[in-house]
Amino acid sequence: MKLTLRLWPFALVLICLFSISSFGKQPTQKQKSKKPLIVFVAGDHEYSGESTLPLLANILEKNYGFRTKVLTSYPDQNAEKNIPGLESLAEADLAVFFLRWRLLPADQVAMIDAYVKSGKPVMGFRTTTHAFNYPKGDPLESYNAWAESTFGAPPGWGGKAKHTHYGHNASTDASVIPSASKHPILTGVAPNFHVRSWLYRVLPNYPAKGTEWLVMGKAVNPDKAAEDQPIAWTWVNPYKGRVFFTTMGHPEDFSVEPFQRLIVNAIHWELGKKVPKNWPGMLDIHVPYRGMK
């Protein structure tokens, strides 16, 4: 008993010292960086991805605690040969692409290629089916078909896949595929909704074998005979990366609440997180269509 009493003052001192050293201790940089980083890569000529994606990124940071970074073609959406900052992909937990007919230099393509081949998740919007447009004989010409191996999408515009659309005056009625309705990405998504995107033709050979179709689209006011097409799907690509792709992406689509929820859910799912049970309502994303300028 006497020994215990003699040791008590020393124990008290040790407890105090530990408490003082721990009090006010700030999280390390490693601890801070545990929040997933989403890197958005935009450059699409037509659909204002460099405007819609930053608004989406801000919402993801504010409402869901993600870290985000948005990279855009420089100096504007028509600049096909430069997207500064692609080295950020090396630290990304999810990469989201909205590209159209880029002619990026080999070193920038290599950074995109390294990310995809790392097996990390990827998301793509609309014209990313034809992300690159290198001339015949160019050392990077094979990347014109990049969407096929990355997203299970048609390998570029036209070609053997006859990838095309049903006219700029058309729009799309979207319907959740009943057999996929229990997929986490479709949580809270209205079974039927309308988007301004004119329907892309991807059938009969795409999406790739092994994809899971989530949403079908029906052309409204098409300029030619049209058949329903898958407009949102998931996949595991050859690099073992989890994939979500949608041929929607017209700027007005981002103001449609079911589309908004589809995308927010897909981002959570791709990162291996539970999709949000609660939905705050319509997100403030309102960007007009500018067309080709």
Rank of each mutant, 00 (worst) to 15 (best):
M1V: 10
K2M: 07
K2V: 10
L12R: 12
I15Y: 00
C16L: 15
L17E: 05
S19A: 15
S22Q: 14
G24Q: 07
T28H: 02
Q31R: 13
S33Y: 01
K34T: 12
V41Y: 08
V41W: 09
G43F: 06
H45F: 05
E46A: 07
L56S: 01
L56V: 01
L60F: 02
G65M: 07
F66S: 08
T68S: 12
T68Y: 09
T68L: 09
V70Q: 10
T72W: 00
S73A: 15
A79L: 08
A79N: 11
A79Y: 08
E80P: 00
K81Y: 10
P84S: 06
E87W: 01
S88M: 08
L89M: 08
A90V: 04
A90E: 15
E91Y: 02
A95V: 09
A95S: 13
F97K: 07
L99D: 12
R100G: 01
W101M: 13
W101L: 10
R102A: 14
L103H: 14
L103D: 04
D107R: 05
V109H: 04
A110R: 11
M111R: 15
I112Q: 01
I112H: 06
D113R: 13
Y115I: 10
P121I: 09
P121E: 13
T127I: 07
T127S: 15
T128D: 00
A131V: 03
Y134T: 03
P135Y: 01
P135C: 02
P135V: 03
G137R: 05
D138L: 05
E141L: 00
N144S: 07
N144P: 05
N144C: 08
A145M: 08
W146G: 00
A147T: 01
E148W: 02
T150F: 00
T150Y: 01
F151P: 01
G156M: 03
K160V: 03
A161V: 04
A161P: 04
T164N: 09
Y166E: 04
H168F: 06
H168P: 04
N169Q: 12
A170G: 15
S171H: 06
D173A: 08
S175F: 04
I177C: 05
P178R: 04
A180K: 02
K182R: 10
I185M: 02
I185P: 05
L186V: 08
G188N: 11
V189N: 14
S197A: 13
W198T: 07
Y200C: 04
V202I: 11
L203Y: 00
T211L: 01
M216N: 12
M216C: 01
K218P: 00
V220D: 14
V220T: 14
E227V: 02
D228N: 13
P230Y: 09
P230R: 06
P230M: 02
I231D: 00
T234M: 07
V236W: 01
V236E: 14
V236T: 15
N237A: 07
P238Q: 12
Y239H: 10
K240N: 15
G241S: 08
V243A: 11
F244E: 00
T247L: 14
T247D: 13
G249V: 12
G249I: 12
P251E: 13
V256Q: 12
L262N: 09
L262K: 05
V264A: 06
H268I: 06
W269E: 13
K273Y: 09
K273D: 11
K274N: 11
V275K: 08
K277A: 14
K277R: 07
P280D: 11
H286V: 11
P288A: 14
P288V: 12
K293C: 10
